[in-house]
Each structure stands twice: as structure tokens, then as C-alpha cells.
């Protein structure tokens, strides 16, 4: 733990089957696992990335979408720095459930947590939720927005890298104490990272 400056806890939530695990595996292992089974309980892992020559460790928690497989629900929200809320752009019900997820986030997570809405599976032809609908939703709820494809490796790397960069920026500007002190006071009001105008990733908070 000596060789990195930042450690952030990133938690993925969202309905079953929207592709949370595939997003994580694409990012951590660079692959799209065939026949990925439902997550049971919660899986956690470490991935180190480099942002502006600084080592940033991401502690990733991949949670179960299926209600009956969820465990330690409250704990994984607690002290999360970023929450990735995922839906499937080809599956309306996964989008319709977003308000429920937001209620849970309100209940358990810090109100300063960085929240990102992700519409996954953009490689699919049978899209049901147009991009602007997702964007609108994100805007209304003060979230970042990004569309991805775990399958085609589209925007996945970028999703996590932007989160890392944003959290780093926030931590720096607020001179946040590092992770060990267990504070979660991440402030959303910092400057934008990178050029977001033509990539579907808009800063909204």
C-alpha cells in the first residue's frame, strides 16, 4: 500500500443481467466472459491504474442484482467513493427500476458519493432506451452518464479511468485525507476531466 497515493472504493449496482460483472471483467481482465453466471453475494477486487503518473487503486465491489443473492447490502454502500448504477439499454424493465436503486442509494450511501449512470450493451441492435432518455434521467438525478458495451470493449476502460481521475481530482482539491481515515466526504463540485462533449460522457453535477 506504500506505492500508491489514492485508493477509491467503486461499487456497481443495478438489476440482474445488465452486465455489471462483464463490465468489471472487461476492465480488470480485458475479456468478455462467455456464459457469465449471476453474481451471488458480492465479489471484490483491486485494480491499479495510472492517472497523470499517479498510481490509483480502485477497490471494485461487484454486487448481485438478484434480490435473493444480495448480501451485506448496507456495508458495500458505506464508504463507497463512486457508485456505478447500470441498466441494459435493450431492456426497459432494467431502466424502470432505476428509481428503486436510487432510493436504496439515498438510504445507505453518502450523499456526496460520485454517482454514474451506465447504459450497457450498446452493441445490441434491439435498443429500447434511447441515449437521450438515459441522459435526461442522469441529469435529473445529478449523475454522470455513459453508455458502454462490455462485449465490444466500448467505453469500459474510459468509465473506470474517468472515475479514477475525477475522484483523484476531488481528493486533491479538497485535500481529502486518504482512504484509511474512512471518510467519505467526496465533494462533487470540481472541474470536469477531459473533453466530454463528443463522447457521451457528460458532467452533470
Amino acid at each position: 500500500m506504500e506505492d500508491y497515493k489514492f485508493l477509491f472504493k467503486v461499487v456497481l449496482v443495478g438489476n440482474a443481467g445488465v452486465g455489471k460483472t462483464c463490465l468489471v471483467r472487461r476492465f480488470t481482465q480485458g475479456l468478455f466472459p462467455p456464459g457469465q453466471g449471476a453474481t451471488i453475494g458480492v465479489d471484490f477486487m483491486i485494480k491499479t491504474v495510472e492517472v497523470e503518473n499517479e498510481k490509483v487503486k480502485l477497490q471494485i465491489w461487484d454486487t448481485a442484482g438478484q434480490e435473493r443473492f444480495r448480501s451485506i447490502t448496507q456495508s458495500y454502500y458505506r464508504s463507497a467513493h463512486a457508485l456505478i448504477l447500470v441498466y441494459d439499454i435493450s431492456c426497459q424493465p432494467t431502466f424502470d427500476c432505476l428509481p428503486d436503486w436510487l432510493r436504496e442509494i439515498e438510504e445507505y450511501a453518502s450523499n456526496k458519493v460520485l454517482r454514474i449512470l451506465v447504459g450497457n450493451k450498446i452493441d445490441r441492435e434491439d435498443r429500447e432506451i434511447p441515449t437521450h432518455v438515459g441522459e435526461d434521467f442522469a441529469q435529473r438525478h445529478g449523475m454522470y452518464f455513459l453508455e458502454t458495451s462490455a462485449k465490444e470493449a466500448e467505453n469500459v476502460e474510459r468509465l473506470f479511468m474517468e472515475i479514477a481521475a475525477e475522484l483523484m481530482e476531488q481528493a486533491r482539491s479538497k485535500e481529502l485525507p486518504r482512504y484509511e481515515t474512512n471518510t467519505t466526504s467526496i465533494n462533487g463540485k470540481t472541474t470536469s476531466i477531459g473533453d466530454t462533449s463528443n463522447c457521451g460522457c457528460s458532467r452533470l453535477s
Binding site: G41, V42, F44, M45, I46, R68, F69, S71, I72
Partner: peptide, 10 residues
């Protein structure tokens, strides 16, 4: 301390 892990009550 750990590289990765899984936790469940299922």
C-alpha cells in the same frame, strides 16, 4: 492483503 474475494450468505 487480499487480491480479490467473494462473500456470500447464499
Amino acid at each position: 492483503i487480499i487480491e480479490d474475494g467473494t462473500l456470500t450468505s447464499d
